[in-house]
């Protein structure tokens, strides 16, 4: 029977929404699942973790050194906990998880699995390689399994549970070589194309640089980043750093709205990981409709302002 530890990511007293997705992986593996919260004051976050369905115990590790989470400081504490009898230790596949998990694995002398996207058994998983162009099925050797979870591949489990919250005692020597200096939050009126949760893109059909305003206006209304197809960039409507596609940026937003983009395969290569693709295009035969989750045929110059007014 597996005994699984999930290392919680959190900030400003809020549990990271990815933790409930990692729980989905833990449940697919099967076994007892504990969530551990490292902080200088863990209780409030641990209570949120306790609500995630499937949590056996929400553990708290309070230490002033955990006020800001850093892989090098977390790793020895996680290792001390894992040695208490866990078979698996799972992290969110985000900056913190990726900073910490390899360090934990190295200290345990085991390999690490990055970006689990499907679970076959307690020891076998699918993970992406080559930027998602080849999916490998891997089998872990004996020993503790340390892994990060590709959050985009899983739905969060429900949060109506009520596990107990317990303080865990961890004895580990913490390094002093790493000091947190601060965080400069992303401050931009318009979100960065690469990291935006929503992206609106325009194509050749926009017809001119001026007409792109309709895309910017709409994007600002819904708080989205703005991209463009290579055809639009080549036509000189927008600068090259807005190009989405194989030769531009490869993005994976939750929502991608393609306006007047035919969907050349080089463009599609840049958006294949988007969760929901919406396409608006005059040409009902445009290849973009082959991959769009929601398609609307028509003139974007009338449809987009109309949509903007309805949201």
């Amino acid at each position: 029977m597996s005994k699984i530890l999930i290392v919680a990511d959190h900030a400003n007293g809020k549990l990271n929404s990815g933790v409930a997705k990692v729980m989905a992986v833990a449940q697919a593996i099967g076994g007892d699942v504990d969530i551990v919260v490292f902080s200088d004051d863990s209780k409030a976050v641990a209570e949120q973790a306790a609500k995630i369905n499937g949590t056996a115990k929400a553990l708290t590790v309070d230490n002033a050194a955990n006020a800001n989470l850093m892989g090098a400081v977390l790793a020895p504490q996680v290792v001390a906990l894992v040695k208490g009898g866990y078979t698996h230790v799972l992290f969110c596949g985000n900056a913190l998880g990726k900073d910490t998990a390899p360090r934990v694995a190295a200290l345990l002398g085991v390999p690490q699995v990055s970006d689990i996207m499907a679970v076959h058994s307690a020891t076998s998983f699918d993970r992406p390689t080559y930027a998602g162009n080849a999916i490998t099925t891997v089998e872990c050797p004996e020993g503790t399994i340390v892994a990060t979870v590709r959050l985009a591949s899983f739905d969060a489990v429900a949060e109506d549970g009520s596990a107990s919250v317990e303080a865990a005692s961890v004895s580990a020597t913490l390094p002093s070589h790493t000091r947190y200096q601060g965080l400069q939050a992303q401050k931009s009126d318009r979100p960065d194309l690469q990291s935006a949760g929503k992206v609106v893109s325009g194509g050749r059909a926009l017809g001119s640089s001026d007409n792109f305003k309709i895309i910017f206006d709409f994007a600002d209304k819904i708080g989205a980043g703005v991209g463009a197809s290579r055809a639009a960039v080549d036509s000189g409507y927008v600068p090259n750093d807005m190009q989405v596609g194989q030769t531009g940026k490869i993005i994976a937003p939750d929502l991608y709205i393609a306006c007047g983009i035919s969907g050349a395969i080089q463009h599609l290569a840049g958006i294949k990981d988007a969760k929901v693709i919406v396409a608006i295009n005059k040409d009902a035969d445009a290849p973009i409709f082959e991959v769009a989750d929601i398609g609307l045929v028509g003139d974007l110059f009338t449809l987009l302002p109309e949509l903007q007014s309805k949201l």
């Binding site: 998602g132 080849a134 891997v138 309805k310």
Partner: peptide, 25 residues
């Protein structure tokens, strides 16, 4: 070090066609 064994490599699943809507509403 002990190694992870790759048992299979596959291309990513293709995106499937979604729904077409008629109106902005």
């Amino acid at each position: 070090a002990p190694a992870i064994k790759v048992t299979k490599t596959a291309p990513p699943p293709a995106r499937s066609k979604g729904v077409m809507v008629k109106t902005v509403d």
